[in-house]
Design a protein around this nucleic acid. Sequence first.
RNA 1: GUGAGUGUAGCUCAAUUGGUUAGAGCACCUGACUGUGGCUCAGGAUGUUGGGGGUUCAAGUCCCCUCACUCACCCCA
Length: 417
Amino acid sequence: MSGGKHARPKGTRDWMPEDATARRRVEQAFRHTAAVFGFQEIITPTFEHTEIFIKSSGEGSDVVTKEMYSFEDRAGRNLTLRPEGTPGVVRAVLEERMKPPLRLYYHGPYFRYGRPQKGRLREFHQLGVEVIGERNPAVDVEVIQLGAWFFERLGIADCATQLNSIGCRECRPAYRAELVAFLSGRVAALCEDCRTRLERNPMRVLDCKRETCRLQFAEAPKPAGHLCPSCAEHFARVRAELDRRGLRYELNDRLVRGLDYYNRTTFEYLSARIGAQDSIGGGGRYDYLFEEFGGPSLPAVGFALGLERTMMAMAENPAPARRRLAFLVCVTEAQRPAAVDLLARLRADGVAAQMSYEDKPGRQFKAADAARAACCVVLGPDEVARGTVSLKDLVTGEQTEIPANIVIPEVRALFRD
RNA sequence: GUGAGUGUAGCUCAAUUGGUUAGAGCACCUGACUGUGGCUCAGGAUGUUGGGGGUUCAAGUCCCCUCACUCACCCCA
């Protein structure tokens, strides 16, 4: 039933033990992939001064104008729960005077105020990487490859990589003017949203989802066709290197990412199986952001992926296996002290063990089953008299009596399969 | 922020055109089982029908408000 007295805040979720386990696996896989590519972890605060995000995402962006969790602290400082990862990393790199080139990865919770839907929460989690201080197009490719490998490792088969280039300071103004000129002649055919986009951020008109708008854009000038020579070369080298590494991608000349700080390469990973919010990750180059933060001119490229969306795109987990947990059962209370001692020995040896304090053995087995334990270690008068224990495999139901002193290796052996 | 849809037991869902005591499956509890979980059988408990107001002789059912969830738009992970 929904709407109890103490319900979760809107747009948040609970991670039940099974969910938490699955999430850990994804996070570990990401750590591993990032580490293999030479990245090191960086952890930055969950909230920052609000101006950090305004500066990087852009004053008029939707994220800034209507999606931030901002608040004043008790001393009147204006703070914001981070809506994305890159600004905090950039700030930290400058503030801590870290020496480029840098390869950093991060993960954690992010916050955006908006109406929740499938694949969009108010508190969500991202995993991301940033390469700072490298201009070479091969680095863009490495970052794209990292993401592709990661998704592949998770078994996300139907994941498409889309690629585009949106130019730089040199070529964008001219292109932009041309696009505006083109669109201005067709305002009447555009939807309400696109008309406001035309004024605010014309390039966004390109990825409108409406069929009527899309028809208009068929002949619209595209960013990739208006690159300056050096951007064109960069883009060509990115594509050549992707091909050389055998990475599959599709060009999407409408891929214009939402955050203002991107330039040149932009890319996105899409999954068809997670609903309308089909982007499971995306990124691109941001060669100007450090300057805008008052730092040196530092080229950079990175990407972030959504943990929740990624997990939705993953194949359903197979039947939940039993836990690597041994459950102690004592047949009568007389064996309780011996059982408690054995419990401690198992735990001291790193074997997860637990026991029920029900009196009847039947209850204790039931508790073991309910806890999804892999086996029971049974202590009864007979076993104690013989210096043995009975080990019951809860999957097969087989029970064997073994010398008490080999319990730990036997339980371990049982866990192995 | 905009729009649409949905809220009935722990879960999934029933309940004639408004009509008497709101049902079923699964799960749960008890027993058959005084040294053994799952399987079987026999019993058992469970609801302020999300909340508040209204219409009516009568509301789970109709109307209004509110809350929550879902999906989509916007935007993005």
